[in-house]
Design a protein around this nucleic acid. Structure first.
Length: 554
DNA sequence: CGCACCCCGT
């Protein structure tokens, strides 16, 4: 019987995902009473989880007499990977009441779950649990904590965890480099890149993905090329993720020739990589090429997802003619993408930009399963095109239909007010959101409020609003103020605010990038380039062993 | 006997 289990298990590995083989295994261990051994139960629970049958997994778990820590971990992980966080946490609480103590894997899973459900309070509690359990110096928990804090925007918290570790392993270095990368702190990333090699840890594909992603928005082509050279030398370029982030990096730097070169060197570019390239062309204004590539993508029998479809609709919106937009619309009806929020709002956007707002509204009208999310898309669609009155009418309709507006609804309404310059209405809807609907404003709401005030000429009030927020203030909020200053013809204020930010964060380059992008957006190329040069000026030389990065050519 | 942490697109 044991032999039969092993046979079936190898069969399972061969066929990759099979619910029926899992069920056979399950039946087998029940028949042979092997299900009393948590080792077998653990494997089956995992197989059920892979096949998305949480009900059977839970059933097996509940009938297991002596769950081991492994079995607990797999059932908790099964639920949290399926985003059933409520079940995952209640299982965890149940586990705490048993003899079995959670281990580093349990906490890593819980920590990750907290970050995915954007639960900072939960994360802090879990962090406390980690420390109390004596796992504060565990590398697996620490990596999970670094990533989780970074995902919730708390890079400083992440670095506190990182620097608390006496001897970080490769994964921990990677987590911290990615954390910096997520927020465009490329300089900090490169410093770690140098340090890790100094202490004898060799980077892998993850390291490079984190570094390159951090570079993508800063338009530092020479540094990107240097790292690209490093990838080639270390054979990381065959790594699909590295290839994908290289395409993204070059695309964002508007260097489509390089992006295409990397792309065509990949053996099997995946959906994400195709999207990165197509988006690159679309964003660089070459919508013809983006459309041609999308057709090629389809000819090769590949399946687009809703994100790519939304990108294609945005691409089609760039054409004066509504024809290709309608083609993409037909494509998305054929493949059932029209139920996606992003696709719907892209459709509404595409039609209204092509001069057919009516068609956009009818997309909303005929779509099935209209909910608060679809209302949000429509409100945003109306708002983006200056139909503020209709947008507010739709808001009333939401309330009349007994739907409950969410934070995105208010985001769309605030955005509407921004576009229409309705400062008073914006202020009042912001107040209603917090007072009447009890919604805690998020960074995006403040971004809209800052823009609303700023574009209405009340730069001082916008500035004071930001100063009244608790630290750390999201850099996007500052970015909104900076672009308002410039748009209001007050680039001097932008400069002084940005310089103050740069002064307060001398080690961080992201504010330089922001100010540089503002200058670039207004065609002030000299100012922009100077700031970008200032980013690297002398800085790379300060990092030991990295002087090769700049000026290395491919 | 063995679960695992880090990475890509608007």
């Amino acid at each position: 019987m044991l032999f039969q289990f092993q046979l079936l298990q190898s069969e399972l590995a061969r066929v990759y995902q099979s619910l029926s083989i899992t069920q056979q295994l399950h039946a087998l261990i029940v028949k042979t009473h092997l299900s009393n051994d948590p080792f077998y139960a653990t494997r089956i629970v995992r197989f059920y989880a892979i096949n998305g049958d949480l009900y059977s997994a839970r059933n097996l778990f509940d009938t297991s007499p002596n769950p081991s820590v492994y079995l607990w971990n797999s059932i908790i992980r099964a639920h949290s990977q399926a985003h059933k966080f409520g079940y995952a946490f209640s299982l965890f609480r149940k586990m705490l009441r048993t003899e079995i103590k959670p281990d580093n894997f349990t906490y890593a899973c819980i920590v990750r779950a907290c970050s995915e459900r954007l639960d900072l309070d939960g994360l802090k509690l879990a962090h406390g649990g980690v420390v109390v359990s004596g796992l504060g110096l565990d590398s697996i928990c620490s990596s999970a904590l670094v990533s989780a804090y970074s995902k919730l925007g708390l890079v400083d918290e992440a670095s506190k965890v990182f620097y608390g570790m006496p001897e970080p392993d490769l994964v921990l270095w990677n987590s911290m480099i990615s954390a910096y990368g997520n927020y465009g702190f490329w300089y900090e990333g490169l410093q770690l890149f140098s340090e890790m090699q100094h202490v004898g840890i060799w980077p892998d594909g993850y390291t490079l993905v984190g570094l390159l992603f951090g570079l993508a928005d800063s338009c530092l082509l020479s540094v990107g090329q240097g790292l690209h050279g490093f990838c080639l030398k270390s054979n990381f370029d065959s790594n699909a993720h590295v290839g994908s982030v290289l395409v993204t990096m070059y695309s964002r730097c508007k260097s489509m020739n390089y992006a295409y070169k990397v792309f065509s060197g990949l053996i099997q570019p995946d959906l994400v990589t195709w999207s990165a390239l197509i988006t690159g062309y679309s964003q660089s204004g070459d919508s013809e090429k983006a459309l041609r590539l999308f057709k090629k993508f389809n000819w090769e029998g590949k399946k687009a997802d809703s994100v790519l479809i939304a990108t294609m609709l945005a691409t089609a919106a760039q054409f004066a003619n509504v024809g290709s937009g309608k083609e993409i619309h037909a494509h998305c009806l054929r493949h059932g993408h029209e139920s996606h929020v992003k696709v719907c709002s892209a459709l509404i956007d595409m039609y209204s930009k092509s001069g057919f707002l009516g068609l956009g509204i009818s997309v909303f009208t005929i779509m099935s399963g209209r909910n608060i999310v679809s209302y949000n898309s429509l409100i945003l669609g109306l708002g983006l095109h200056g139909h503020a009155f209709q947008a507010f009418k739709k808001f009333d309709e939401i309330l009349e239909n007994g739907l409950i507006p969410d934070e995105c609804t208010f985001s769309a309404l605030l955005c509407t007010c921004c576009h229409a310059g309705l400062v008073k209405d914006g202020k009042s809807i912001f107040k209603r959101m917090t007072v009447e609907f009890g919604i805690q404003p998020r960074a995006e709401h403040y971004v809209h409020m800052v823009k609303l005030l700023g574009m209405g000429g009340e730069l001082e009030e916008a500035y004071n609003l930001i100063l009244s927020l608790p630290e750390p203030v999201d850099s996007g909020i500052w970015g909104a103020l900076l672009s308002c200053c410039d748009a209001c013809g007050n680039p001097e204020m932008a400069k002084s605010v940005a310089e103050r930010l740069i002064g307060n964060n001398p080690e961080s380059c992201s504010y330089r990038v922001m100010l540089s992008n503002i200058y670039a957006g207004y065609g002030r190329w000299d100012d922009a380039m100077k700031l970008r040069d200032d980013q690297t000026d002398g800085k790379l030389r300060k990092i030991p062993g990295l002087s090769w990065i700049e000026g290395s050519s491919l």
